[in-house]
């Protein structure tokens, strides 16, 4: 009997140790941001391509002029409601005290400066592919934006999803280091970087399993609207027959080939994409056309 108890205790301790090890928040590779420049102008394009303002400005904020990243937009989900935090560079309410490395760890690994996992409502599963150069430029640009003292609102998430350590398991299961699409031309590689890394298009356009992991076998095949009514459309060639020119036009003016116009969150995406060079919009179009058809 005593032996059984002792074995059990050993097993439990071992299990907890393995669990803690596996769910450990990762740290940046050594020297990740070393030697990077800080070019705010280049960072403005990263900021647009990554769509930061679409979620981190306050609800209903004007999109003209300098974005104020005060946070506060609510994102309802099956796991609770997430509130986008204040990521302005205010000293107390925002990222004012952050170092570049802390910022890089947050963006590419989804880990806070205090070593806590972020919820994947923050699309770090996509941003993990961001180059150190782009992270550094983004950081430099965001520093030029106005600060705002509005405190971040706590997420409204119930047990067990309120245990952040558990997100380590989620990351293990669903954050893959690999890109989904092959890219054998320079244009496709650029398109893939814009779509899979910065644009995080798949966060809405790909369906998820019961615990919120992306179903990579149905890549971009459409999904229920994560926060509201209606559906996010299938944009694989099985459902979308637009030409590359049609796609570029849509990313520029928001007009579909039959002169419907982008609405909702996609209208914000178009606003962001229209700020990028046309070659980038063409690269995204090439990527979309190369998607495998998923009915």
């Amino acid at each position: 009997m005593r032996r059984i108890v002792r074995t059990l205790i050993v097993l439990i301790v071992l299990g907890v140790a393995i669990g803690l090890y596996l769910t450990q928040p990762r740290t940046l590779p050594d020297g990740f941001t070393a030697g990077t420049a800080a070019d705010p102008q280049a960072g403005a394009l990263i900021f647009a391509a990554a769509g930061c303002a679409s979620c981190h400005t306050s609800p209903g904020a004007e999109t003209d002029g300098m974005p104020v990243l005060a946070g506060g937009q609510a994102f309802a989900s099956d796991f609770g409601t997430f509130y986008a935090p204040n990521i302005s560079f205010d000293q107390t309410a925002g990222l004012g005290g952050w170092s570049l490395d802390e910022f890089a760890r947050a963006v590419t690994l989804g880990v806070s400066p205090r070593g806590q996992h972020y919820y994947p409502a923050f699309p770090y599963a996509a941003y993990q592919h961001m180059t150190a150069e782009d992270v550094a430029n983004l950081f430099a640009y965001m520093k030029t934006l106005p600060g705002d003292a509005t405190p971040s609102r706590a997420h409204d998430v119930g047990f067990p999803f309120n245990i952040r350590r558990g997100l380590g398991l989620w990351k293990l299961a669903f954050v893959s280091d690999d890109y989904v699409m092959a890219a054998d031309t320079e244009t496709l590689a650029r398109g893939r970087y814009l779509v899979e890394a910065l644009g995080h298009c798949t966060e809405c356009h790909t369906p998820r399993n019961a615990v919120g992991g992306l179903d990579r076998s149905r890549w971009m095949a459409g999904a229920p609207n994560p926060s509201g009514k209606g559906t996010i459309p299938n944009i694989t060639p099985a459902a979308l027959d637009w030409s590359e020119g049609d796609l570029v036009e849509y990313f520029t003016s928001g007009f579909t080939p039959d002169y419907d116009s982008a609405g909702g969150k996609m209208a914000e995406v178009v606003e962001n994409l229209s700020r990028l060079p046309e070659t980038d919009r063409a690269a995204i179009a090439a990527y979309v056309k190369a998607l495998p058809a998923v009915p």
């Binding site: 559906t231 116009s261 909702g264 996609m266």
Partner: peptide
Amino acid sequence: MQALGGTCGDCHKPYRGPRN
């Protein structure tokens, strides 16, 4: 056309939901 097109998006962004 540019000005007119802008008004489509300005209204569809806050007031129209995604496809059903």
